[in-house]
Amino acid sequence: MSEPVHIRRPRRWHIAVFLAPALAVYTTLMVIPLVETLRLSLFTEQDQVRSFVGLGNFITLFGDPRWAQAFWNALLNNIEFFSIHMAVQNPVGIALAALLSVPRLRGRAAYRTTLFMPTMLSFVVIGFIWKLILSPLWGVTPSIMAAIGLKSLFGPWLGQEDTALIAVSLVSVWQYIGIPMMLIYAALLSIPEEVIEAAECDGVVGVAQFWKIKLPLILPAIGLISVLTFVANFNAFDLIYVSQGALAGPNFATDILGTFLYRTFFGHQLQLGDQHMGATIATVMFLIILSVVAFYLLVIQRRMRRYEF
């Protein structure tokens, strides 16, 4: 009590030294460009003079028929792209994880390794592989389908307007499935032994045990996977660019926000690249992603807390 704390501690420079490199790189290359992109969306350029237009670019994007039509097309396609992921990837991922976690399963490690393999490959490789396999020119798919008697169902799926988006989405699911599978598998393994034993004592076993006991317990993992998938889907680009081109054909049937942003920013065919409209689209994507992530963190994740042990 005698000496008040006016003895100043020496400045702890080492804290700054430890933090500086990470903060410098992260701020300069991630935070500032993001803020700068948001700012650019409020400007336009004519005759190399940049001028402030407020929300003018957004009004153009939503209001001008030429832009609005392309934008809503890309947004709706993106929503469909995401919906197909959710509808196929989650059930299949959960099913595979449930099968993998069957007790005393032989060859578990081998299954795990091979099932996760496609997730490791690049979208470029995946895009081309499936483009070749689904190509009517090569005829691998028709001959496989013929072997199971379904040859008549084959079509050039990637080339038809009404099937292209579904086909590309399924290719993306095929590649991405390893992530939900592994995260759910981990969630299943972390269910305490006592919970399972208690269920068994009550006669809840097998499939019923999965639905009544395990599924509610892995809901947080499913929530996390859904938001991860959403973020990945709403800035997806590579797969569509590789398999369908920058024009996201046929007739923009597979155009999503990522390809729309790329075309707007860099230009294509006769249309010149437009930095400010590009920034506007990036801003819209940012707001979409941010609102869904915020909704997940503030609403969904909080409600799920109660399932934790």
């Binding site: 992260y26 700068e36 650019l40």
Partner: peptide
């Protein structure tokens, strides 16, 4: 930065 993809800042990154 875990949740926001860096790609959204591409336009400013390229300029920089």
């Amino acid at each position: 930065g875990v949740m926001v993809p860096i790609r959204l800042g591409t336009i400013a990154i390229l300029e920089m």
